[in-house]
Amino acid sequence: MVTTDQNVPDITRVRQVPKTVKDSRSYTVFRVVNATVLVIVCGVTLYPFVNLIAKAFSSHGYIVAGQVNLWPRGFNTTTLMEVLTQDRFWTGYGNTIVHTVGGTAIAMALTTTMAYALAKKHLKGRSFFIGMVVVTMFFNGGLVPNYLLISGLGFKNTVWAIIIPNAISAFNLLVMKAFFENFPNDLEEAAAIDGMTVYGIFFRIVLPLSKAVVATMILFYAVAFWNSWFPAMLYLSDPELQPVTLYLRNLLAGATGAGREAGMEEVQIGANLQAVTMLLTVIPIVCVYPFVQKYFVSGVMLGSVKG
């Protein structure tokens, strides 16, 4: 069985210290301090989330008075209900899902096929094509030429402006290529002898046996599309097409008066409303995260193995 974990070290492992070794007194002190600091680090990392939940369920008066920190005060769910019944919010959510699914599908189709072809070491022109990919890691056209290209193609205010231009990530492609290079030859050879073509081998042998790395790449792309907002701000001026991240950005910008750039009316928007929208935006990621975390970690480490 081929898994992503084949070359990936276990970074949750802790060093085994023989029982016979006694820690010096100062090292014991260090360990206590170390553990305490780490607990504080975890607390600081989680605090914004805790504060967010507290603010989302507090009544406006307490927030304005600056009395909401760890727990909700003046418990209220009216803002939550308000947002949940707002069309604008659900439109954004729907668009985010469309962008994520569409973008990831296109990106995966291009990335897996290219990675598979480039993993074949005998392929003539291989190093040229690899070079073509690597260059994009260190040099890109820049904001203005990209903007002019996308507008010139007539992608503005279409979903294509979001899901096509970010299709191939050089990093993801090189990770997949390195993975396919280590794919056992025997399997592919046996299939070839049985009369399978490259297409058959790729779709019926290689892909099904590469589920772990494919899942990792899907997650990498999906998170990037889910979180993206800037391309939407550049190319989607029609509110009906905007993702929820952009909706949230406009809320934040409106609240601070920087919203003029986005061409939105200047309104003082309650911290409560912001908090509810933020909460609803992060919930899917926070819920899925614990289950998929290991794929990200192994993906990052696979990427560090030089292709």
């Binding site: 189709a109 291009l110 990335t111 096929t113 290219m114 598979y116 072809a117 480039l118 074949k120 392929l123 094509f129 073509m132 990919v133 994009t136 040099f139 890109n140 056209g141 820049g142 203005v144 030429p145 990209n146 002019l148 290209l149 096509i164 231009p165 299709a167 191939i168 490259v198 790729f202």
Partner: peptide
């Protein structure tokens, strides 16, 4: 195998290299 490269390479040229030339 080369058919696998057609779309990705076209993609790279249009969306990565044309902007560089841009």
């Amino acid at each position: 195998l080369y058919t696998f490269l057609i779309l990705p390479v076209a993609y790279l040229i249009i969306f990565r290299y044309v902007p560089m030339a841009g």
